[in-house]
């Protein structure tokens, strides 16, 4: 938890959060903010450049590009969030459970995950759509299933290390239940790792929504999405070479902000790991000089020392 609070104080994280807040706002209010009907075609004004009437120009059917971008934000973002949400539920819960529910559950869970990881993304989504019908939800949930192993592995690995931590052993000696250990000692420390994974997964999902729409899977035209616009604009590259850049830039900014946030979470987690050593000066309780006590040795410091004796 402290990792996440600390993240909020980092400048890079604040920029990323601000960008994401704007994106979220557009996702909710995009349709309302759109100056024109994103579906209204005006065949007399196709493929026009920016003008007073159409701030970002029009597409091959004469629809207002700005309105379509705004209106498409929601579908693109909610799609990504939906798939990552599904992936988290399907990944984190069995990931943590695999450590406590015994060998047979662990073995089965690991095999299922291995199997899922062999499936190719796009193909699986197309197959799922083929079975369950073409629609954004079907495609996104299929994507969520495929992203789940990522969360499974990451949360399991993080918890595996923590489970052997001495303070967990100490809690077991107090007679603490599994649930309690999970809540007080594991959850808070696995959270930053999951946050990083979530940011990366959201970025992946956003791009996959785009590429699926590009293939005609998921969102049906004429409903606008960033990926769909990118796909159709590419068809008119000769007439409007700059057009694909508009949805492209939006995807890039959103994904970039997510990655920035993920990095910030990771960095502040690393800073926290190094903190016990810095405790002397950061905590202000010791003398400011690094403790002479063995436990308070910084890993980095050790590395520096290592040079002394091994060179």
């Amino acid at each position: 938890m402290r990792t996440l609070r600390r993240t909020g104080r980092m400048p890079a994280a604040r920029v990323a959060l601000a960008v994401l807040a704007v994106v979220a706002l557009l996702a909710v209010l995009g349709g309302v903010l759109a100056p024109q009907d994103p579906l209204a075609q005006d065949t007399t004004r196709v493929l026009q450049g920016p003008s007073g009437a159409h701030l970002l120009g029009t597409d091959y059917l004469g629809r207002d590009v700005l309105s379509r971008l705004l209106a498409g934000t929601g579908r693109s973002v909610f799609g990504a969030v939906e798939s990552v949400g599904a992936a988290m539920v399907l990944g984190v819960v069995p990931g943590l459970a695999s450590l406590w529910l015994g060998r047979s559950f662990e073995w089965s869970a690991l095999r299922v995950v291995d199997a899922l990881m062999t499936l190719p993304f796009t193909l699986f989504a197309i197959a799922a759509v083929g079975v369950f019908g073409n629609g954004l939800h079907q495609a996104m949930l299929a994507l969520g299933v495929l992203l789940a192993p990522l969360f499974f592995r990451v949360s399991r690995a993080a918890a595996l290390g923590l489970k052997q931590a001495q303070y967990v052993e100490a809690a077991e000696l107090m007679g603490a239940s599994r649930g309690r250990i999970l809540r007080t000692h594991i959850a808070a420390k696995v959270l930053p790792t999951i946050a990083v994974t979530t940011a990366h997964a959201l970025a992946t999902a956003l791009l996959t929504v785009a590429s699926l729409t590009f293939l005609g899977v998921g969102v049906q035209p004429p409903a606008p999405t960033w990926g769909g616009m990118l796909a159709s604009d590419l068809g008119y590259l000769a007439q409007q070479p700059w057009a694909p850049a508009l949805p492209g830039v939006l995807i890039m900014i959103t994904v970039g902000a997510l990655n920035l946030l993920a990095d910030a979470v990771r960095d502040s987690g690393a800073a926290q790991a190094a903190e016990p050593a810095a405790g002397g000066s950061a905590g202000g309780t010791s003398t400011g000089a690094p403790d002479d006590v063995p436990a308070a040795r910084d890993a980095r410091e050790r590395k520096a020392d290592e040079r002394v004796v091994t060179v």
Binding site: A170, L173, T184, P276, A295
Partner: peptide
Amino acid sequence: ELRDHRRSGVVQYMFQDPLRSLDPDL
């Protein structure tokens, strides 16, 4: 029984290194 015995706190084990046996977040 073991869990109840542990919860009773009749016996306590104090680890060598408090940096490792105390949860750093609590």
